[in-house]
Nucleic acid binder design. Structure first.
Lengths: 138, 138
DNA sequence: ATACAGGTTGGAGTAAACTCTAAGTCAAGC
DNA sequence: GCTTGACTTAGAGTTTACTCCAACCTGTAT
């Protein structure tokens, strides 16, 4: 599979793909005799892995560390498990943060939906965390 | 409330707090006659709002835009609602991405937990997206 | 009185993750 | 034979979000 195809498949730029390879987020991919990248099934698996982890906000450095461990063979099972557990904890925490903000947002959006209809913004002290700066005296 | 107290309360640096004010993620906070920041309840509400949104990965620019709208008064209810809806969609998508990666991770971690015990890494083609670079011929 | 803790400013510096540029190689089509 | 398009590299530039620095002010404790 050519670079172009891979880029299209994953909606990613060639530059990013080369960058990922350069920093080790994906290992060196297969080349044609002309030194042109020709992604094998396995290479594509690596690309997919990288993109998925990056999508979830895992830092490039951490993905690269995992890939490095994978290339070192069977002695690194434990280290890989530990790294992935760490990654998991990070993502779980990230989801929690997002969920908290989502709750706040739902409440605020509901208030604004009401405000758009009635022209009045209901102000609930129980949900204290508001900018509401238009109520400031100036 | 002094800057130091706010920093402690939210585990944030004074530099970041000043930066947030500079770029409009929080509006100009109340000052003492000595020109020293003295956060009112409302200022703190803004800080909390900013930190919560940033925690969920909302870009600084978007938070600033929201705060700007808030300062412009009641005519911006609609615009604020729309902006918050946009923010919500972004966060929902982010959570989905994280959840997808989480599923992958659970599977992989389970495999490694098994591998650590048995010394053998089970390879399941159904869950294709694997670097598995140690299986490459070199 | 003088040091110190805690502020203030403008502006420079940094880290992460791309993203772009310049200069070169190579095969295919006209 | 020459252009076009798709690649190659090293390295520079950009964006975002801080983070640090130097030089200054000011109320309190020794």
């Amino acid at each position: 599979m050519t670079m172009k195809e891979v880029c299209k498949k994953y909606s990613i730029s060639p530059d990013t793909l080369r960058y990922y390879e350069r920093v080790g987020v994906i290992p060196a991919v297969h080349r044609t005799k002309n030194n042109v990248r020709d992604y094998t099934e396995q290479d594509i698996g690596c690309v997919e892995n990288a993109i998925c982890m990056r999508n979830a906000g895992v830092p490039v450095e951490m993905v690269a560390k995992y890939v490095e461990l994978c290339q070192q063979g069977d002695e690194t099972f434990l280290a890989r498990r530990d790294l992935l557990r760490e990654v998991r904890e990070g993502i779980v925490r990230q989801i929690e943060k997002c969920q908290r903000e989502l709750e706040r947002l739902e409440y605020k959006i509901a208030r604004y939906e009401n405000a758009v209809e009635t022209g009045e913004l209901v102000w609930d002290r129980a949900f204290s965390l508001e900018p509401e700066t238009e109520k400031k005296e100036d």
